[in-house]
């Protein structure tokens, strides 16, 4: 490991790290919001809407993230959609993760015990209140372990953004590697970085899972 090289590139790497975290956070935030909306849409009475959302989810889950990024970033201009690499990256991550999040929410909504909803209906609560006060909070708890899991998966997907030249950590590392011929150091550092990130988030995830389980089991 050549520490002086790492030190020299430290500012760029720290910037890259910031970009990685920012892309991850904003992409997943977008994905959670979109995914929640898609899960609600899947309950709509309109058959056509439900079919469209089904296709949305299947297409996004059935194709590689890299391909979706290429379509957005390289293909977008043909449709008059000119996005910067970073915007395309965040938007792409948001769309891609929304498909997974929507499935998680859909399952979590379906798992809310019917009786809890009936109790709300029996006191005359309106559908929106039942959603906001009963269904959503309970579904969120049930969904939290798979959500953490998906967040981990998405944190690894952010590496792919380097391919469309988003200046995130992997991209900066590769730049460093190309300029200094220290590919090994760079890639090794990346591996260690992601391993740590995933370990930390997984640990948090397991804790969340235990809490969620304690919360849900006791009720039944």
């Amino acid at each position: 490991m050549s520490w002086d090289v790492l030190l020299h590139y430290a500012p760029a790497l720290i910037r890259g790290f910031g970009v990685t975290i920012a892309c991850w956070a904003s992409g997943c935030a977008l994905g959670l919001v979109l995914g929640f909306a898609v899960a609600l849409g899947a309950e709509a009475p309109s058959r056509a809407l439900r079919a469209v959302l089904r296709v949305y989810v299947e297409v996004l889950r059935g194709t590689p993230f890299l391909m979706q990024l290429f379509i957005l970033y390289a293909g977008g201009p043909s449709l008059g959609l000119r996005l910067s690499a970073t915007t395309a990256g965040v938007l792409g991550l948001g769309l891609y993760s929304s498909a997974y999040f929507s499935e998680i929410f859909r399952g979590a909504f379906a798992a809310v015990p019917r009786g809890l909803i009936e109790a709300a209906m029996s006191v005359g609560m309106a559908p929106f209140d039942i959603l906001a006060r009963v269904r959503a909070p309970i579904a969120f708890v049930a969904a939290s372990p798979p959500i953490v899991n998906t967040l981990i998966v998405m944190s690894k997907e952010t590496v792919v953004l380097s391919i469309i030249t988003v200046p995130e950590l992997m991209y900066e590392m590769q730049t460093m590697a190309a300029e200094t011929f220290t590919a090994f150091d760079a890639i090794f550092a990346m591996a260690v970085f992601y391993w740590c990130l995933v370990e930390v988030v997984s640990r948090i995830g397991r804790r969340v899972e235990k809490r969620a389980a304690a919360f849900l089991v006791s009720h039944a």
Binding site: G62, T63, L66, M67, F70, A74, G75, S78
Partner: peptide, 27 residues
């Protein structure tokens, strides 16, 4: 698929079509 889509995109200057076609193969 992805590499070939990239090649087609750069040869034909039609990235949207190339990548959508590649995506459909995956799908």
């Amino acid at each position: 698929i992805t590499r070939v889509s990239m090649n087609i995109a750069s040869m034909t200057y039609r990235p949207l079509e190339a990548y959508v076609a590649g995506g459909l193969f995956y799908l």
